[in-house]
């Protein structure tokens, strides 16, 4: 089997999924139960643990969008980008 084109395999790299795993580890609030005093402080209207979860979610969105925005797909080379 041929290797997938570079831009398709870019999304499958261990580095990408390592970053997602790291973000998931922070985004899922499993650790806040051990620091209840900090967890329930209010940061910008949200409990601290929710604030961190939302910021992490934004991090996931940003990372995903950056991956999608920067990596052209193989078909784009030939399709001429007649858009909108």
């Amino acid at each position: 089997m041929k290797n997938p084109p570079e831009s398709e395999s870019a999304y499958l790299s261990p580095k990408v999924w390592g970053i997602y795993t790291l973000l998931l580890t922070v985004a899922v609030p499993w650790y806040w139960q051990f620091i209840p005093g900090v967890a329930c402080q209010v940061w910008l209207g949200l409990p601290a643990w929710v604030f961190v979860a939302v910021v992490s979610s934004f991090g996931v969105s940003l990372f995903t969008a950056q991956l999608l925005w920067q990596t052209r797909w193989p078909d784009e080379e030939s399709e001429g980008d007649a858009e909108l």
Binding site: V54, S57, F58, V60, S61, L62, T64, A65, L68, W69, T71, R72, W73, P74, D75, E76, E79, D81, A82, E83, L84
Partner: peptide, 19 residues
């Protein structure tokens, strides 16, 4: 999707819509 570009960019925007 009409093109890979339109799909790729749509998904990039979709990533922010939960927020």
């Amino acid at each position: 999707a009409k093109s890979a570009t339109s799909l790729r960019k749509s998904l990039a925007i979709m990533a922010f819509l939960p927020l």
